[in-house]
Design a protein around this nucleic acid. Structure first.
Lengths: 98, 98
DNA sequence: CAGACTAGTTTGTGCTGCAAACTACTTTTG
DNA sequence: CAAAAGTAGTTTGCAGCACAAACTAGTCTG
């Protein structure tokens, strides 16, 4: 048991952050979502959502596609293969350690 | 489902931190442990362990009793009632949201 | 054409986790 | 018995991060 606890020490900080955990959990469920959906579903400010999405993109966990819905910008997000893999592993660590 | 996700936003940052999560999970299992046991079980440096224990004590989650084992200082730690309550709730949030 | 709205991004600040350095005491060893 | 090594932690300095507020850029409305 004491060894399993230490798996927590190596946990992925990128997805461990609650704001990003929300984003990743949502994307894991829907597989594609726009900025506005995530904005409402998470309750984050636009600023934070933007920053966290960039960080997830930088880590290669989320793919972001910028396009248009009519005249307005539309930001589409989905988990990458690597992203869902890391999330699966995160859940496993949490289930085992807690 | 989207509403449950938002419970993550309000998660307790004190115990969410991996190092402290290890400490709290260990204490929840044994109910009383000394510094050395936690030092080995967590793999943290003494410095970090000391700081995290102080933070947990400051939050009222852990009670720390300083005494002696023979000539050497002995630091005993255990979860407070509040500490185990918060930990129970943390686990519940994690189970539900993920 | 001025003000309000949509859809985000950038910036500044303050907090916090981490390891290394340090304190204080005890035991061993030459 | 003095110096070195060990025990048991605490303090400190810095680097990184999350957060909200301010800002950008374009669009609609009266």
């Amino acid at each position: 048991m004491s060894e399993k606890i230490q798996t927590l020490a190596g946990i992925d900080r990128i997805i461990h952050e609650p704001a990003r955990l929300m984003i990743v959990a949502l994307l894991a469920a829907v597989e594609e979502a726009d900025f506005q959906y995530l904005y409402q579903a998470t309750g984050l400010t636009k600023g934070n959502l933007s920053v966290h999405l960039s960080k997830l993109e930088g880590a290669g966990y989320v793919a972001i596609e910028k396009t248009f819905r009519g005249k307005y910008p539309l930001t589409l997000c989905r988990l990458t293969e690597r992203g869902s893999e890391v999330f699966r592993n995160y859940r496993k660590v949490m289930r085992v350690a807690l």
